[in-house]
Amino acid sequence: MIEALQYDFMRNALLAALLASALCGILGTLVVVKRYVILAGGIAHAAYGGVGLSLFLGLPPEAGTFAFTGLVSLLMAWIAKRSPGRSDSVIGVLWAAGMAVGVICTDLAPRSGADLMSYLFGSILTVTRQDLLLMGGLLAVCLAVCATRYREILCFAFDEDFARVRGVPTSFYHYALVVVLSLSVVLAIRVVGLILVIALLTIPPSIAERFSRSLSGMMVLSTLLGVAFSLSGLQLAYTFNLTAGAAIILVAASAYMLVTVFPRRRS
């Protein structure tokens, strides 16, 4: 691994994995405790609609994808808020429709280019400086908000009705979480791919939840786990010449299975 670091692209890949792990560690913690996993999956898949649409309309891919994903995720967030019990099927429809729009638009696009494989697994070895800066910026915003409004966020995550009664702006947090989530998902998809985004959002927090004594501890532990999975996955990919994203996911999934086999231990 050390020798691999003499290459620029390897250093960037490493940095991208760290930033994605931290973003997904913080947001994924909220996604897991708030039971937003299906919402996050829906956002990540609908994002492909944005990729295809930008290609079809000849828009710059980042801006087009951000706009499309942002709108679809706000729609999903609105549905999730209006009918909490019934939202998952509607999100499932948007999930599938978003992907279908992406595929059809790619079919119809004057020039091809959106490669479904790179959307699924990303291209962590070709990360740009701009990608890194955007992810770093978003991470800084998340950290600042969590540090200054921790107890509000904790209360929002634990018991939304009680938070509302105490004057916490819960609607704002609900929509803000979804928007930040969709921004992170779009950024991270370009880097690590759709499947790894969902994996990083759900697997490290699900493991961390069993061993944490506080929400902030769960965020930190999720981040560390994400980093550990990314590093060992990248190492495997480098050594055996495998697809990096898929290698990272397999490491994470194996850890998840190991942990679920053993009984819960924290006290």
């Binding site: 405790v33 107890r151 509000e152 904790l154 938070a163 105490r166 916490v168 939840e209 944490s212 506080s214």
Partner: peptide, 15 residues
Amino acid sequence: FPVSVLDVVLMGRLH
């Protein structure tokens, strides 16, 4: 949910 008893009670002190 990873939260201590005291942290839950402290939610009552918000605002």
